[in-house]
């Protein structure tokens, strides 16, 4: 065990863990942020995707010891129901999630993609997102939601901050 400082979503946490512990379990079980999911434990499914200094990584296969001072962003740091990120907004408008379990990881990958390529083609999306599995099969909607988010981000006007209307 060793005391380590982790910066998650702008907040510094001191955690006392085995340096080999994958970041995923430190985030979920020690820090208590549950939005990041476990799906395979071997960098195959993308459910555990978080950002290290803005770059997506598979937290199930990233030991706490390699994180050092890098800033960690999880789904909780992307947006909240009252202050949605454009990608989350687009995900709601396209009604992407089914069971929802893979969607934190999908959104983390999509946010990173749009930073790199603000205007991705279908091929760009397919290539970039192929590491994220969705067993509910929401792939087609993920494609269209990414295009929609790209549009929302480029409109430049501030993204709507209210959740999508329900029942209207």
């Amino acid at each position: 065990m060793a005391l380590t400082k982790l910066t998650v979503n702008g907040k510094v946490y001191s955690v006392d863990v085995d340096p080999n512990m994958p970041l995923l379990w430190a985030i979920r079980d020690v820090i208590g942020l549950k939005g990041t999911k476990f799906g395979c434990g071997m960098a195959q499914c993308g459910a555990c995707t978080v950002h290290l200094n803005g770059t997506p990584v598979r937290s199930c296969s990233t030991p706490v010891s390699v994180v050092k001072t890098q800033k960690i962003t999880t789904i909780e740091g992307i947006g909240t129901p009252d202050h949605l990120h454009a990608v989350q907004q687009a995900w709601i408008e396209e009604q992407v999630p089914q069971c929802g379990y893979c969607q934190s990881g999908q959104i983390m990958s999509a946010v990173a993609l749009l930073k790199q390529k603000p205007n991705p083609s279908d091929e760009d999306i397919d290539t970039y997102m192929q590491g994220n599995i969705c067993r509910c099969g929401t792939y087609q909607r993920i494609r269209s939601a990414i295009h929609k988010a790209s549009g929302l981000l480029q409109e430049k006007k501030p993204v709507k901050t209210t959740p999508a209307p329900v029942g209207k």
Partner: peptide, 24 residues
């Protein structure tokens, strides 16, 4: 309501990492 496209109420929870699954 029936027969209309109504947004699913659990979607905002599921895009913000707030839906509680068994593992959570």
């Amino acid at each position: 309501l029936l027969g209309k496209n109504i947004p699913k109420p659990d979607v905002p929870l599921k895009v913000t990492g707030r839906a509680q699954f068994g593992i959570d």
